[in-house]
Lab assay of single mutants.
Amino acid sequence: MATGGRRGAAAAPLLVAVAALLLGAAGHLYPGEVCPGMDIRNNLTRLHELENCSVIEGHLQILLMFKTRPEDFRDLSFPKLIMITDYLLLFRVYGLESLKDLFPNLTVIRGSRLFFNYALVIFEMVHLKELGLYNLMNITRGSVRIEKNNELCYLATIDWSRILDSVEDNYIVLNKDDNEECGDICPGTAKGKTNCPATVINGQFVERCWTHSHCQKVCPTICKSHGCTAEGLCCHSECLGNCSQPDDPTKCVACRNFYLDGRCVETCPPPYYHFQDWRCVNFSFCQDLHHKCKNSRRQGCHQYVIHNNKCIPECPSGYTMNSSNLLCTPCLGPCPKVCHLLEGEKTIDSVTSAQELRGCTVINGSLIINIRGGNNLAAELEANLGLIEEISGYLKIRRSYALVSLSFFRKLRLIRGETLEIGNYSFYALDNQNLRQLWDWSKHNLTITQGKLFFHYNPKLCLSEIHKMEEVSGTKGRQERNDIALKTNGDQASCENELLKFSYIRTSFDKI
């Protein structure tokens, strides 16, 4: 039985969820670079991206490699990797027998973001014989899940209580170790020597080791999670996991709180800001991140802002960003909400898709409305799209047979046209069989910064309504002859009103 693990408890099935942008060198404390989270699957090609990484700022997932063999891993080693800020997950990587050479110096898994409450997941690794993470000293947050690894031993010899604050939620089941077939031998045991430290858990006094050649490092209890030197002297209180010299914040392997210019500090002093819960960055760093993602459509890219001495992905609820200094300031009234469309555009074809934009005031991208039916549609669209004030790209209304009016965009005031449909149009209306009105132009103002209007096959939309939009939106004169079809717009509506004058002759039985 794995020490510190839980057996036999019912657990939810383990679901495996399925960018080499360097964020800056980590400095003297770390020998390499800070790398983003990685999802490495199918083959070993991307694994080489770990070569210079000291910190993975995010998670590391290595999974679904069915053609790899043990010899493929023999020359692979990433000794610079010290810390993973989120979680480490391995799933069905064939041929991998140990992690001792792959990650010989991995010391800390912070667990800032977890995989279903777990910071370390080893699942269905069919050839893994031992973990071998002999320098792993601290899992700051989260638990361990090690399950269905039929060859995995050296679990009962690990004292997880020396690595985690609590072992109650560890789930370590259905491994070879369960069948008591392992016969784990710690260093020196074969020669009758006791080389590794022994600890007591559940009444068992057991030597602690990761492999037959690597003991588990056990520091004096007084050192807590700070770690200790090879001689057993406690590291500085700002260290986490390990250090090369005692009581020196510049000799830590990793930091308990924050890293700044080669030393570990309790908090980031001005003019620095907390970033990702582990390091200090200056304003320029946060500003660069903001600008890199301002026009990016890459998933996970955030326009970072500053709030409460932190550089964070977005302002919290009730705050909006001051564009001059990136500071989050309290909103006066309802907060603006910028919604970034991942692929640059979004099609609204149902109430469900409209709900995804609920509360958005600025759309960074283009909207395509293609709704053919739905219950209580006008009210639903207004509830979900009615706060949109600005669209950076274009607005396209296409084959939306259920629409009679666009009044559900009740606050839309600006279409920038930074991206144009077919390279020309910022407003595009095609084949809307029941569209009769755009907006009530006596109450609604709309500016279209650039781009043209396109109207074709809107049989109940009168040309007068379209011409009014040209005047109000500032697009009059931009359109070419064929942009607004004269014969297919309003051709099934009563669009022309003329005053009919009647004269009559009164007659009676005795007068003409």
Rank of each mutant, 00 (worst) to 15 (best):
L89I: 10
I172P: 13
C335Q: 04
R263Y: 07
L326E: 14
P36H: 03
A156D: 01
G32K: 05
Q303V: 07
H212Y: 13
I139Q: 01
I146S: 02
Y319F: 13
F205T: 14
S166I: 10
L102M: 08
K193M: 13
C228R: 02
K80V: 04
N105M: 04
V108R: 05
A230W: 10
T140C: 08
N242S: 11
R69F: 13
F91N: 14
P334S: 11
G132F: 01
F103M: 04
T157G: 07
N149T: 08
L114G: 01
E151W: 08
K100E: 15
K80N: 13
R69D: 01
C264V: 00
L63G: 13
T211V: 10
N105D: 05
D75P: 07
L44G: 04
K67Y: 05
R141T: 02
P330S: 09
C228G: 01
K67P: 07
G188M: 15
V34H: 05
E238G: 06
R297L: 06
R298P: 08
F115Q: 04
G203E: 14
T211Q: 04
I122H: 01
L76V: 09
S161C: 06
T85Q: 11
G188R: 05
D72E: 14
P220Q: 08
M65H: 07
H236P: 02
P36W: 05
V206C: 00
H59C: 12
Q245P: 02
M65Y: 08
R298I: 11
E180H: 00
N138M: 13
L164R: 06
H127A: 12
H302L: 04
K294T: 06
A156G: 11
D288Y: 06
N202Q: 10
C331N: 10
L155Q: 12
Q287H: 13
C228I: 03
L81P: 00
F205R: 02
P330R: 10
D248P: 01
S284A: 12
E238L: 04
C228V: 08
S317F: 14
Y134W: 14
I109T: 00
K80M: 09
C235M: 00
I109M: 02
E231F: 15
T250I: 04
M321Y: 14
G227S: 13
I158K: 04
E180L: 11
N282C: 02
C53Y: 03
K176W: 12
D39P: 01
K294W: 14
Q276L: 08
R141K: 09
N105A: 05
K80E: 03
P316D: 09
H214N: 14
C186Q: 01
I201A: 13
S112T: 12
L50Q: 01
L240G: 07
T107A: 07
D72V: 07
C268I: 01
V173S: 08
G95S: 05
P249Q: 08
I82V: 06
A190I: 06
T250P: 01
M137A: 07
T107P: 00
L50C: 01
C335M: 03
N179F: 06
S98K: 03
F285Y: 03
C331G: 10
R46I: 04
P270F: 07
I306R: 02
P79L: 03
M83T: 05
D75S: 10
D169R: 12
M83I: 14
S143R: 07
L44N: 04
L50Y: 05
N325Q: 11
P70N: 03
C280H: 00
S166P: 12
C182S: 12
P313R: 07
T189M: 07
G32N: 14
N179K: 15
P187H: 04
S296R: 04
V121H: 07
I62E: 00
F78A: 04
S296M: 10
Y30A: 15
K191C: 02
K176E: 10
L63F: 04
E238R: 04
R162M: 08
L174W: 06
L164Y: 03
S284C: 02
T107C: 07
C35K: 00
C331E: 02
T211M: 03
S98D: 02
L29S: 07
G132M: 01
D177I: 15
T157H: 14
C293Q: 01
P313D: 10
L96K: 01
Y134A: 05
Y273H: 09
L289E: 10
D277Q: 09
P270A: 13
P70Q: 11
N117G: 13
C239G: 01
W210N: 04
R297E: 08
T140L: 05
L60F: 02
N135K: 14
T250L: 10
C328D: 03
E124V: 02
C328M: 02
W278Q: 04
L327V: 03
Y273A: 05
H214C: 15
Q204D: 14
C182I: 05
P36I: 06
C239I: 00
E130P: 01
L81K: 00
T267R: 02
M125S: 06
S324T: 07
D169M: 08
F275Y: 07
F258K: 02
G183Y: 11
Q245W: 09
G227Q: 14
N195R: 09
V93I: 03
H226L: 11
C264Y: 00
I56L: 07
H28C: 12
S244P: 04
F78S: 02
F258L: 07
Y30P: 09
I139V: 08
K224A: 09
N309S: 08
P271L: 06
W210C: 10
T267S: 04
D169Y: 06
P336R: 07
M38I: 10
W210G: 06
C243Y: 00
D184R: 14
L289I: 15
I84C: 01
R162T: 06
E130V: 05
P79R: 06
S324W: 14
F283H: 07
L63V: 15
S237K: 05
Y304A: 03
